[in-house]
Nucleic acid binder design. Structure first.
Lengths: 157, 157
DNA sequence: TTAAAATTGACAGGTACCTGTCAATTTTGA
DNA sequence: TCAAAATTGACAGGTACCTGTCAATTTTAA
């Protein structure tokens, strides 16, 4: 077994802290979305769909998720009246997602709460340190992405 | 709607980067665990149970999860022969989790792969920047935890 | 000492992801 | 041009979380 180095221990700390922060951020997102009858996942889908009528597959690509996951979320949003599916005259396979008035209203409300929340947090941290942290996390992200898993390639779905 | 400040935008970047990194880390964890027939979640449970016979509820508290979630994972691990439940003579409600030989073997193998992986990554980053990043994330974590949601208190379960 | 409170495991059911497969419908490139 | 490839939605089923509830069993505090 490899002996732990200082850097190894520090990187392990980073991993644990990312997990912890991720959980807290998801929780906060749900609290911001809940008053409008949404969850984090549904808010995100509404947010993407807000930029114009899009297909479920397009939303999935934008969010880095599977079509099938977004479909499920979109179906729930449609069931609850936040969005509607519209046939696409140019592609007989596709149905496009369009926000309803209720969907737009809910999205605006969540976005407003979100802005207030983020600004409140941002005001309590040092901007230079914040920027450095974002840069470091981006480095870590590209580090994790850099060695593309040998063997299999990108899947098409 | 609140106008976005520099710090607000930067904090938003931080959030997005944490989400991205979390996804990549989970994926990497699954890749480390898979060769031994485990997933990230099952590896974590085995790891906690390795420190001695523990109840499901104790594991859940250690991991910051619900009893019920850990129970499900533990049942799956027992079904696959990685651990066994043993009656506790001191508490007739409780059954304690004990790793089987196969469970210990799998855990050791995953931990060895994990150590190699972490050290490989850690060697490619600057230690000072890494430490600063961990500290900054810890600040963010405590920032998110500091304002305890008014109204309801800790739940007992 | 004993009644209230907490803990534990178990069960039911929900959310948000995932994979794999299928048929219908574009899009493509030889 | 037209067959192969890709895309899309739909369906089935799996993982890992969650909440709420229940009965059995400790633990506690009056």
């Amino acid at each position: 077994m490899a002996r732990w180095t200082e850097a190894g221990r520090s990187f392990t700390d980073l991993i644990l802290e990312v997990f912890r922060l991720n959980g807290l951020l998801l929780e906060a997102g749900d609290h911001l979305a809940a008053p409008s009858g949404l969850t984090s996942a549904r808010w995100q889908v509404l947010g993407v769909a807000d930029h114009g009528p899009v297909t479920v597959a397009q939303v999935a690509r934008t969010m880095g998720l599977r079509r099938q996951s977004v479909q499920q979320t979109a179906d729930a949003l449609a069931r609850d009246g936040f969005l509607a599916f519209v046939d696409d005259p140019d592609d007989r396979r596709a149905r496009r997602i369009a926000l309803t008035a209720a969907g737009r209203r809910a999205l605006r409300a969540v976005e407003a709460r979100h802005a207030v929340w983020v600004e409140g947090l941002a005001a309590r941290v040092d901007l230079r340190a914040l920027r450095a942290t974002v840069a470091a996390l981006r480095d870590a992200t590209s580090l994790l992405q850099s060695p593309p898993p040998r063997g299999r390639r990108r899947r098409k779905d």
